[in-house]
Computed example of a mutant assay.
Amino acid sequence: MAQQVRGVIARSKGAPVEVTTVVVPDPGPGEAVVKVQACGVCHTDLHYREGGINDDFPFLLGHEAAGVVESVGEGVTEVAPGDYVILNWRAVCGRCRACKRGRPWYCFDTHNAKQKMTLTDGTELSPALGIGAFAEKTLVAAGQCTKVDPAASPAAAGLLGCGVMAGLGAAINTGGVGRGDSVAVIGCGGVGSAAVLGSRLAGAARIIAVDLDARKLDGARSLGATHTVDSSATDPVEAIRELTGGHGADVVIDAVGRPETFRQAFYARDLAGTAVLVGVPTPEMQLDLPLLDVFGRGGALKSSWYGDCLPDRDFPMLIDLYLQGRLDLDAFVSETIPLDGVEQAFQRMHKGEVLRSVVLF
């Protein structure tokens, strides 16, 4: 029997979000209903509200979530009612050419729930990243549920569902940061700060945090940055080169996602170094680089989609590190808020006042 719960929707482009009643159907084949315990407020949700992803309004926002499986549909074997899970937006298919080549983290046919959640008048909702977790309960594909140790705090664990995983993965998976490497991270919000933490976890010797905001630079230093660069006062490319013996960093991660910051990442890396784009651009942005420089500097230019993670491999491992005290996920939880505090949280995020606001249910 369908259930009615409270959820946060974006009804139209740029309009303030609103809390309203959402109808959650019973899970069908391959689906699960999850009782959400916590959900982070991510910049991607703001992108949805501003029409920066697509125009399939109204959106049911929220996607960085942890909770407990309430019920499952026919044929579901991955999880069972009562399982504590982190929700993910990379439910791999196992059948596409990427999966068959043994690279499921690149799956080209990830899937979501087939049924739609709706408003009470029957209007279909588009769940953010196929999840829609600013709601007391949500309907997802069972493959979007990754079972982890229930000892982990939901507020911290849920952040692996998007931003923190994106940053950690950009460093460890995409960038291939290793012991003794030099790393620069441009943009030290939630994703960039996670890239700093991931670089430290991987054993980087020099981690350079770059931002315009002194508060974010202080936060990055607390998470493992060995050096900071205030890019409002100095050229970050020159500063990164100076801090790396005049050469540039082995890996430079752009966690902003703008043409100018990616150009900085491109030129701030060492010859044959790696530049990683993990910040999300908007559709109108264009990149202009001299092709001769692309050829002559060598190395790799990579984009990192969800930190190139494989949720059922990475989430349990990272939660184990968190419970061992080796991965400080709690540091990303700036505040906890009620469901009706999302709009105000967007404003604080836009001002750079928080790493993550987290809705607790």
Score class of each variant (00 low, 15 high):
Gly175Phe: 06
Gly176Glu: 08
Arg179Ser: 11
Ser182Lys: 04
Val183His: 09
Val183Ile: 04
Val183Arg: 11
Ala184Arg: 12
Val185Leu: 03
Ile186Leu: 15
Gly187Ser: 11
Gly187Glu: 12
Cys188Glu: 13
Gly189Cys: 12
Gly190Leu: 09
Gly190Lys: 06
Gly190His: 05
Val191Gln: 03
Gly192Trp: 12
Ala194Arg: 06
Ala194Tyr: 07
Val196Pro: 04
Val196Gln: 08
Leu197Glu: 08
Gly198Phe: 01
Ser199Met: 02
Leu201Phe: 10
Gly203Pro: 02
Ala204Asp: 03
Ala205Thr: 00
Arg206Tyr: 00
Ala209Gly: 05
Ala209Val: 07
Ala209Ile: 05
Ala209Leu: 04
Leu212Met: 15
Leu212His: 10
Arg215Tyr: 04
Lys216Phe: 06
Lys216Trp: 09
Leu217Asn: 13
Asp218Tyr: 06
Ser222Gly: 04
Ser222Leu: 13
Leu223Ala: 04
Thr226Arg: 05
Thr226Val: 05
Thr228Ile: 14
Val229Ile: 14
Asp230Trp: 09
Ser232Ile: 02
Ala233Cys: 11
Ala233Gln: 15
Ala233Val: 13
Thr234Pro: 00
Glu238Thr: 14
Ala239Arg: 08
Ala239Met: 02
Arg241Val: 02
Arg241Glu: 10
Thr244Arg: 10
Gly245Val: 01
His247Thr: 07
Gly248Tyr: 08
Ala249Lys: 11
Asp250Gly: 11
Asp250Leu: 03
Val251Lys: 09
Val251Gln: 08
Ile253Val: 14
Ala255Pro: 09
Arg258Gly: 02
Pro259Leu: 07
Pro259Met: 06
Glu260Gln: 13
Thr261Cys: 07
Thr261Lys: 07
Phe262Ser: 00
Phe266Pro: 00
Ala268Phe: 08
Asp270Arg: 15
Asp270Gly: 08
Leu271Thr: 13
Ala272Cys: 14
Gly273Ala: 09
Ala275Asp: 04
Ala275Lys: 02
Ala275Ser: 15
Pro281Gly: 01
Thr282Arg: 14
Thr282Cys: 00
Pro283His: 06
Pro283Ile: 08
Glu284Ile: 00
Met285Lys: 08
Leu287Ile: 01
Asp288Met: 05
Leu289His: 03
Leu289Glu: 01
Pro290Asn: 14
Pro290Cys: 05
Gly296Val: 09
Gly296His: 13
Gly296Ile: 10
Arg297Asn: 14
Gly298Pro: 13
Gly298His: 12
Gly299Leu: 06
Ala300Met: 13
Leu301Asp: 04
Lys302Gly: 07
Trp305His: 13
Trp305Tyr: 14
Trp305Ile: 12
Tyr306Ala: 09
Tyr306Trp: 11
Cys309Tyr: 03
Leu310Lys: 02
Arg313Glu: 10
Phe315Glu: 12
Pro316Cys: 10
Pro316Trp: 07
Met317Cys: 01
Leu318Ile: 12
Tyr322Thr: 10
